[in-house]
Design a protein around this nucleic acid. Structure first.
Lengths: 160, 160
DNA sequence: ACATATCATTTGCAAATGCAATTATTGTTT
DNA sequence: AAACAATAATTGCATTTGCAAATGATATGT
């Protein structure tokens, strides 16, 4: 018997949303939203990124991200500069102010995660992360199947 | 060295969003959005729910859900009836049409999950789900700590 | 019984989101 | 080199979202 509450997408979404919500509230006092933190932490890990790369890294839709970067630039957290050698792309980086801020937030993130998983043996968490990473990879390969199933149904519908 | 891309909230969000996105596209041909599917599957699993219960079960914010139920009622997928004995609450249920539809979608969800995890031993997936469920539970207990850390900082800020 | 508090849901409104179209630049074909 | 295709980012616009306030209903204290 199928149960939504025992399905993987449901469980992932539920824990992900809840964690995001808690952490979001944890950092709200710094006037930083969760997407902003993700962008800064992504840039801290790997600077000089293009918009599309950052979008892939943060799972934020590209037009949303474009506007978010605009706002973060206005706040002096990041720079966004057109490249001279390829002016259709843009390089995004942390400003010193952005770097200082994210380096203040990262320890909070670390502590948050420590507390969240403190009930579990370290090995379980390592395994969990490994499986999550692998599932993410494997999703890429099922994408074609999804698209095809969709197409098949559309065609059937068109036929009546 | 901290890496956003190795942090649990990030990894959860990434896989969760990606899976949701893929499944969303998979069912788009049925003119059903992912939140709608979640509501229907939740009601299929446990009918006669109040708005707040459904919100907790689906992790959809309550006002968003109120409007979503309105739309689904307009489409004839669910009923929303005030109780006679307690008219401030509302009982939400699937209509026959909604039930038929969700019973068409559930096999798709099952297949989707099977494909997504087909590269992994069943035991890994069972373990994964167990840990996810436990983490979700444990998050409830850290909520106070989050609230407190926040308050402490606000107070410090107020002091200057 | 009346005022007040609490609970459950809905709604107003401003902000965030995402798709599609647009702009700007670079790459390719003949 | 001109025309066309492809890539990258931005923007217009309609929809969705979420907080806070409002509404409606029940429970509680005096």
């Amino acid at each position: 018997m199928y149960q939504l509450t025992n399905s993987l997408p449901y469980m992932l979404n539920r824990v992900g949303v809840r964690m995001g919500d808690l952490f979001s509230r944890r950092i709200a006092g710094y006037s930083v939203t969760l997407p902003m933190y993700r962008v800064m932490a992504a840039l801290w890990e790997k600077g000089d990124q293009r918009l599309g790369d950052l979008a892939a890294m943060t799972t934020i839709e590209i037009s949303t991200l474009s506007r978010l970067i605009g706002e973060m630039k206005r706040r002096g957290l990041v720079t966004r500069t057109r490249l001279k050698d390829n002016a259709r792309t843009v390089a995004i980086n942390l400003t010193p102010k952005g770097r200082t801020l994210v380096e203040e937030l990262i320890p909070i993130a670390i502590h948050f995660e420590e507390v969240a998983v403190s009930n579990f043996p370290a090995k379980n968490i390592v395994d969990l992360k490994t499986v999550l990473a692998e599932i993410y990879e494997s999703l890429n390969s099922i994408e074609p199947e999804i698209a095809e199933a969709n197409k098949a149904r559309k065609a059937a519908k068109a036929r009546g």
